[in-house]
Design a protein around this nucleic acid. Structure first.
Lengths: 141, 141
DNA sequence: TAGACGTAGA
DNA sequence: TCTACGTCTA
């Protein structure tokens, strides 16, 4: 059972369970799981500081799933409009800064495919989190 | 009253009246008024030739409303991904070619703001078409 | 695979 | 105003 959430908040989203599958980003927006329509990192401001509350890894970026418990998440920024090419170094701002301030085990930056700096964030599964079970979902045409 | 149309066709779309207002491009898609989600020119292929069946002028391009009966519609192409900058000459292909093949009074090309060629298409209202009456619509937040 | 008059939020 | 792990069709 899903609820409609319009406000951003930290912590789990009521009605969403581990393994839930979605077809479109706007679905995440509607149920409040991840509000940005395109951006991969959602964050909120608290006490003049920003904190990440959710990330999306849809496969568009070169993330690295080290194990079922660890994900190396690629930072944002530096891309030309429309994506594809890294034209500038990524900076520790916006989503990248929010990740640093909150849920990240460790982070660093390294040169990417086009020689520009890319931030990497090591995300770890919550200890003893219930096991992921992929639910079947009807795919669009 | 609106109908759901899934097939592209020439001519008027049942249920759509002159002056109807829409908030989102996807609405045009759903009712079959204009299928492309982003592209401004929709077209179909007939007898190995493409013909334009609808255009969208949402204000993003530098169109020129000469009068309530004439619109100078800007062609497509040459833009960097994400829009904004004209990097190459537009070509007489895709939507531009489709417009040339169908509903256009006359067309030409000229250098745009960035010195690259831009196609212009003169569109004229159907003679004695019923007058446009803007309908009130509730705007999103 | 690339092109396209998108969309919402910071 | 600019960014952003979109989304569809040709």
């Amino acid at each position: 059972k899903l609820y409609i959430n319009t406000k951003k908040m930290m912590g789990p989203v009521p009605g969403v369970e581990i393994g839930d599958l979605f077809n479109y980003r706007v679905e995440l927006d509607i149920i409040g799981l991840h509000k940005p329509i395109q951006s991969g990192i959602d964050f909120i401001k608290q006490d003049d500081k920003i904190f990440a509350i959710s990330v999306v890894a849809s496969g568009r970026y070169d993330n690295d799933v080290v194990s079922c418990d660890m994900l190396i998440y690629t930072g944002q920024g530096g891309n030309v409009a429309g994506g594809c090419k890294q034209l500038e170094d990524q900076k520790l701002e916006r989503g990248n800064l929010a990740l640093k301030n909150s849920i990240v085990e460790r982070y660093w930056h390294e040169p990417g495919r086009f020689g520009k700096l890319i931030y990497k964030f090591e995300l770890r599964r919550v200890p003893h989190q219930v096991e992921l079970t992929r639910k079947k979902v009807k795919q669009p045409k």
